[in-house]
Measured scan of single mutants.
Amino acid sequence: EEPGTYGVALYRFQALEPNELDFEVGDKIRILATLEDGWLEGSLKGRTGIFPYRFVKLCPDTR
């Protein structure tokens, strides 16, 4: 996996908008950016989108 910051999904998130990223509990999401209003941008399984930061637990930065 690529170096960078990752978050592990604490809850299932179902995308409601085309720019959102849906995921299941336990998915490991690569964090790409921190956005305003409590949203993160991340990538998972070749898809990129935004999601609420409270749905993931950030992992320590590992290489």
Rank of each mutant, 00 (worst) to 15 (best):
E1T: 12
E1D: 08
E1F: 09
E1Y: 10
E1I: 13
E1M: 13
E1V: 13
E2F: 11
E2L: 13
E2I: 13
E2G: 11
E2T: 13
P3W: 10
P3Q: 13
P3N: 11
P3K: 15
G4C: 11
G4E: 15
G4T: 14
G4S: 12
G4L: 13
G4P: 15
G4W: 09
G4I: 14
G4M: 15
G4A: 12
G4H: 15
T5Y: 10
T5I: 10
T5V: 08
T5N: 09
T5Q: 13
T5L: 14
T5W: 11
T5C: 11
T5M: 14
T5P: 09
Y6K: 04
Y6C: 06
Y6D: 02
Y6M: 08
Y6G: 03
G7Q: 09
G7N: 03
G7C: 15
G7K: 00
V8H: 08
V8N: 03
V8M: 14
V8Q: 07
V8D: 03
V8L: 10
V8W: 02
V8C: 06
A9T: 04
A9I: 02
A9L: 04
A9F: 03
A9Y: 05
A9S: 05
A9P: 02
L10Q: 05
L10E: 04
L10W: 07
L10K: 08
L10I: 14
L10S: 07
Y11T: 14
Y11Q: 14
Y11P: 02
Y11G: 07
Y11M: 13
Y11R: 15
Y11I: 11
Y11W: 08
Y11C: 11
R12F: 00
R12Y: 01
R12C: 06
R12D: 11
R12L: 04
F13L: 02
F13S: 06
F13E: 00
F13K: 10
F13Y: 15
Q14N: 10
Q14R: 10
Q14D: 09
A15C: 04
A15P: 08
A15S: 15
A15M: 04
A15D: 05
A15L: 04
A15R: 04
A15Q: 02
A15K: 00
L16S: 15
L16V: 15
L16A: 15
L16W: 06
L16Q: 15
L16K: 12
L16T: 15
E17F: 06
E17N: 15
E17Q: 15
E17S: 12
E17K: 15
E17R: 15
E17I: 02
E17W: 06
E17C: 09
P18F: 04
P18G: 06
P18I: 08
P18L: 07
P18H: 09
P18Y: 06
P18R: 13
P18S: 12
P18V: 08
N19E: 11
N19V: 05
N19L: 06
N19T: 10
N19S: 09
N19I: 04
N19H: 11
E20F: 15
E20C: 13
E20S: 07
E20W: 14
E20K: 12
E20G: 09
L21M: 01
L21H: 06
L21T: 06
L21W: 00
D22F: 13
D22C: 11
D22T: 12
D22L: 01
D22N: 13
D22H: 14
D22Q: 15
D22R: 10
D22E: 14
F23V: 08
F23E: 00
F23A: 05
F23R: 03
F23K: 11
F23P: 00
F23D: 01
F23I: 11
E24K: 11
E24R: 07
E24A: 05
E24D: 13
V25C: 08
V25K: 14
V25T: 07
V25I: 11
V25P: 11
V25N: 02
V25M: 11
G26K: 04
G26C: 08
G26F: 03
G26H: 03
G26N: 05
G26V: 01
D27G: 02
D27F: 01
D27P: 01
D27S: 03
D27C: 01
K28V: 10
K28S: 06
K28F: 04
K28P: 05
K28A: 03
K28G: 03
K28W: 06
K28Y: 06
K28Q: 04
I29M: 02
I29V: 06
I29S: 02
I29T: 04
R30A: 11
R30S: 07
R30C: 08
R30F: 07
R30H: 10
R30T: 04
R30M: 04
R30L: 11
I31N: 01
I31M: 02
I31H: 07
I31W: 00
I31C: 06
I31Y: 00
I31P: 01
L32A: 01
L32K: 05
L32D: 06
L32N: 12
L32T: 09
L32Q: 09
L32I: 10
L32H: 13
A33V: 07
A33N: 14
A33Q: 10
A33Y: 05
A33C: 09
T34A: 08
T34R: 10
T34Q: 10
T34W: 10
T34S: 12
T34N: 09
T34F: 12
L35A: 09
L35Y: 10
L35Q: 13
L35P: 10
L35C: 10
L35N: 05
L35V: 10
L35E: 01
E36M: 00
E36T: 09
E36C: 07
E36F: 03
D37P: 06
D37Q: 09
D37R: 05
D37S: 09
D37T: 08
D37K: 09
D37E: 07
D37L: 04
G38A: 01
G38K: 00
W39C: 03
W39D: 04
W39P: 02
L40K: 00
L40N: 02
L40P: 04
L40D: 00
L40R: 04
L40H: 08
L40M: 12
L40V: 14
E41T: 08
E41L: 09
E41K: 14
E41R: 13
E41Q: 12
E41N: 06
E41V: 08
E41G: 02
G42W: 06
G42M: 00
G42Y: 00
G42Q: 02
S43T: 15
S43K: 11
S43L: 08
S43M: 11
S43I: 06
S43D: 08
L44I: 11
L44N: 05
L44P: 05
L44C: 11
L44F: 10
L44Y: 08
L44S: 09
L44T: 07
L44V: 13
K45T: 01
K45N: 14
K45P: 07
K45M: 08
K45E: 14
K45H: 14
K45L: 06
K45W: 08
K45R: 11
K45C: 07
K45A: 12
K45G: 12
G46V: 04
G46A: 04
G46K: 02
G46E: 06
G46Q: 02
G46M: 02
R47Q: 05
R47S: 04
T48D: 01
T48M: 00
T48I: 10
G49I: 05
G49F: 02
G49R: 05
G49E: 00
G49A: 00
G49T: 01
G49D: 05
I50S: 05
I50T: 09
F51H: 01
F51A: 00
F51K: 04
F51T: 03
F51V: 10
F51W: 05
F51N: 02
F51G: 01
F51I: 02
P52H: 02
P52W: 05
P52A: 03
P52L: 05
P52S: 01
P52T: 02
P52G: 06
Y53R: 15
Y53D: 15
Y53C: 15
Y53W: 14
Y53Q: 15
Y53G: 15
Y53T: 15
R54P: 06
R54A: 13
R54F: 09
F55Q: 02
F55R: 04
F55P: 01
F55W: 08
F55H: 10
F55A: 12
F55G: 02
V56R: 00
V56S: 03
V56P: 08
V56L: 07
V56E: 00
K57V: 04
K57W: 03
K57R: 13
K57I: 05
K57E: 04
L58P: 08
L58T: 09
L58N: 00
L58F: 10
L58Q: 04
L58W: 07
L58D: 08
L58A: 05
C59K: 12
C59Q: 15
C59N: 08
C59L: 13
C59G: 10
C59F: 13
C59S: 11
P60F: 11
P60G: 13
P60D: 15
P60K: 14
D61P: 13
D61S: 13
D61G: 12
D61E: 15
D61H: 11
D61Y: 08
D61L: 10
T62D: 14
T62M: 14
T62H: 14
T62E: 13
T62W: 08
T62V: 13
R63C: 12
R63H: 14
R63W: 10
